[in-house]
């Protein structure tokens, strides 16, 4: 599809147009934390981030989501969830878009999850290439990259004062249609400039791992002492799972006042002991060692078994945010060394 150019000065106008037509999600900063929010005023948008601290999964899989609400009178009238509006996310990094495709597999498999799939279907992903990948980024090891557009509807890349705009899907084309006069056809010169910027960004990614064969090695390592060693310093805080763009575990809970209530699903984490605790008191994953191991296996062994893909995009958040510096890449490197 065609390539376009939009002036940096016109970006705000584009955001105005998009937020009129749909729910617009874009990065904002709150208490110095970069995250995606639904935008009420385009002046709130803040593009000064390497990657958002909180992944964009909350747009389709909110941390707390009402499944349905009900009255607590005799009738117990059930109110289904709202009809979701068309939404656009601007500024999603290619790795987070990749993660959305990974989440699709779970929510689409067998039973269809109506809440996730409806929002996902109505969502247009406008990516923003990375110009400054973080020190923990390793997306290039997982078939991604700072300018990878595979899982996006369109991709913006900063080129000086302008943005180079690539349209990937029909949904992306529709965005151009909505604001035709803001976009100009891109020149070959600008494309070269863009390619150069992406190359520069790629060169900033210093960390990497060859992921081929890790699954086979993990299959031989389940009972290894390695997991005990690695989990020694884990505090079980679960930040690695909460900030992981592919983690999708949730709990279902009821909340109520005197007159009404709602059933919500809330993010949960396999790093918590209560997560697997039976009502009887028995716990099949009793120690932190079991839980840390489960997280690594789920990403690099179980998910490949079930969906033929690794459930990791190399965004590096779990490495960056771990309070005790447990480093997934180091863990994987130890796995590779442990099995010859």
């Amino acid at each position: 599809m065609d390539d376009y150019r939009i002036s940096g000065k016109k970006l705000k106008d584009l955001m105005e147009v998009l937020s009129r037509e749909a729910d617009l999600y874009a990065p904002v900063k709150k208490n110095d934390v970069a995250l995606f929010k639904r935008i009420d005023s385009v002046s709130d948008i803040n593009l000064d981030y390497r990657n958002t601290d909180v992944p964009s999964k909350n747009i389709v899989f909110p941390q707390t989501e009402t499944i349905f609400s009900y009255t607590l009178d005799k009738d117990q009238k059930i109110e289904p969830p709202p009809v979701y509006r068309e939404s656009i996310v601007f500024g999603i990094r290619p790795c987070d878009a990749h993660a959305m495709s990974i989440l699709d597999s779970v929510f689409r498999d067998d039973f269809k999850d109506p809440y996730f799939l409806d929002k996902r279907k109505k969502l247009t992903l406008i990516g923003l290439s990375c110009d400054l990948p973080g020190a923990s980024c390793f997306c290039t090891s997982l078939s991604g990259g700072p300018g990878n557009k595979t899982h996006l509807d369109m991709l913006f890349t900063r080129t000086g004062d302008d943005f180079f705009v690539e349209v990937v899907t029909e949904k992306g084309k529709a965005v151009i249609e909505k604001a035709k006069d803001l976009f100009k056809k891109a020149t070959d010169k600008l494309k070269k400039q863009k390619d150069g910027n992406i190359k520069k960004a790629e060169a900033l990614i210093k960390r990497n791992i060859a992921v081929d064969g890790i699954k086979q090695k993990l299959d031989k390592l389940f009972d290894s002492e390695l997991w005990k060693e690695l989990s020694q310093k884990c505090m079980g805080c679960s930040i690695c799972t909460y900030l992981c763009p592919t983690c999708h575990c949730f709990d279902i809970q009821d909340e109520k006042t005197l007159e009404k209530g709602r059933r919500v699903r809330v993010w949960d984490s396999c790093a918590f002991p209560e997560y697997t605790l039976h009502a009887s008191g028995h716990n099949p994953r009793p120690a932190r060692m079991n839980r840390l191991r489960n997280r690594v296996y789920h990403k690099y062994s179980y998910y490949p078994d079930n969906f033929d893909m690794i459930a990791c995009v190399g965004c590096g958040r779990c490495i960056e945010k771990c309070p005790v510096n447990i480093d997934l890449l180091d863990v994987l490197k130890k796995v590779k060394e442990a099995v010859k």
């Binding site: 039973f111 999708h248 709990d251 279902i252 949960d268 697997t276 062994s301 079930n306």
Partner: peptide, 17 residues
């Protein structure tokens, strides 16, 4: 197992794959 959603999404009852 500690199950929650019953439909293979929430992850609680997972035993390996």
């Amino acid at each position: 197992r500690h199950m929650k959603c019953g439909v293979g999404k929430c992850g609680h009852c997972q035993i390996n794959g």
